[in-house]
Design a protein around this nucleic acid. Structure first.
Lengths: 258, 258
DNA sequence: AACAGTGTTTTAATACATGAAACAGCAAAA
DNA sequence: TTTTGCTGTTTCATGTATTAAAACACTGTT
């Protein structure tokens, strides 16, 4: 935190430590983690607590994220204009498909997970709402790339292939520009994408585009599961279910464009 | 903003202006609204944009709340421990009841709206997720008050009745301690509460408690609509539907306690 | 071309952030 | 019971980030 120059940056560097994995921090504990003076950290947390952005548990005296932050999160336009409308459909799809399902948008040339519904029978994935993933190695991302207008696709692929070198997560990951472009053409013509163990061994995802009412692709919808459950014959069935979800979503989102 | 003493407070005073009603602000516009110098406001917004907490639209150059804030909002424990689990049930209840439904908790002796699902046929209400409402004049609040342990109820009522004088929103609003206590006893015995035009003329709400698996009341669930649709015979039906929702929620939330 | 309006940058003055040290409180160990 | 250890909280002189006025850059309109 010493290298940060503004209080705004420091404030959010503090908040960044509160995750679903570690939702609570004591002052001294957090100060050590950050490498900052504990009275400085205390002052930030104390101010944040006064604002309801953080919450100090009366008994344990540990801090967690507060209700005001939840409320502010709900004010983000993506939430009201998109997630609130699409979430019920996502729940339906998860029920029908019995796998974990996601909706994502393309943001900074990456996949941004906008929503996720797990199925009791579905695989537990490491993704969470708000997490980013590489576009080139996920079905969510490849679909979004495939349906980009040509100029925009070129620019985005430039960023992905040149500015940020693609990492091979598994032996199946597509890292060559030539192969990826060929794959995107195929996805565009078939209307869906597969991630066949490209991002994680044993994991297969099938993703399709979500159109708005202007027939622009604005997001993608996917189902993820173990390779054993994603055989060729199942995929066509999954795509059909995803499509009913995407069609229902299209009806609801109007001209939304992220 | 001049009176605020810390940058943390100033940061969130800025963010507070971004609402669902006015989601976008220009620098100069916001500076005028706040009564601050525009270069000061610009620096805050610029820092927030760099962090993804705000988002500067490239074309309009107006700022709105950013995806990072949405992600941080999802990290609040109330979201993962409660809202994500209860929301599907809330959707079901809204479908069955064809009215707008809410879930709320008691926070700072007030009702905090945790979630809301509107029905196409339902009334549009001014509440939003994250908004507070008085506990004494809403069915959501009265139920929560009624099921508080006696000592805690006494303390909470002290705050409501003495520290913060109850306002009469309509001619029906209960503002007398004696009447309210009598009402709470009745609610406790009947198991549901009615707001009969107490918070808003023409509006009736019926609310019931949500129990966790320790049989503690942790939240309340309500349906709201026009007085014409909330006749005596309908109420019993609504309560029955709400109860199926509350029972399903109880199964899902474990020992959650806000 | 001039003007108006917005967002962005610069820089001397000033407000407030920082961190070391002290303090307060609680629980565990001696 | 006293001592020790640990955490969160407060104090205050010093350091530095913030502030706001002014200038600048850019776009659109007259």
């Amino acid at each position: 935190m010493k290298e940060l120059k503004s209080s705004v940056h420091k404030t959010f560097a503090i908040l960044e430590h509160f995750t679903n994995k570690k939702p609570e921090w004591g002052v001294t504990e957090l100060a050590e983690e950050i490498g900052s003076n504990k009275s400085t950290v205390y002052r930030f947390l104390s101010d944040l607590d006064k604002l309801g952005i953080a919450y100090k548990h009366p008994v344990t005296e540990k801090y967690s994220l507060g209700l005001k932050l939840f409320e502010l999160g709900c004010r983000v336009q993506l939430k009201s204009a998109f997630v609130d409308k699409t979430h019920p459909e996502l729940i339906e799809v998860a029920k029908m498909i019995s796998e974990t399902v996601h909706i994502a948008i393309l943001k900074n040339c990456q996949v941004f997970h906008v929503d996720k519904v797990e199925s009791p029978q579905g695989l537990k994935l490491s993704t969470h709402v708000g997490s980013f993933a590489p576009a080139y190695s996920t079905s969510l991302g490849k679909v979004l790339l495939a349906f980009l207008p040509p100029k925009e696709q070129e620019k985005t692929l430039d960023v992905i292939l040149k500015d940020t070198k693609p990492v091979a997560f598994t032996k199946h990951t597509i890292t060559s520009g030539k192969t990826l472009k060929k794959e995107l053409k195929e996805i565009k013509s078939k209307g869906y994408a597969l991630d066949k163990e490209e991002s994680e061994l044993g994991l297969v995802c099938v993703g399709i585009p979500i159109f708005n009412q202007n027939n622009e692709v604005v997001a993608s919808l996917s189902a993820s599961g173990p390779a054993t459950r994603f055989e060729e014959e199942n995929v066509a069935n999954y795509v059909a279910i995803l499509k009913t979800g995407a069609d229902a979503i299209q009806e609801k989102i109007g001209f939304f464009k992220p």
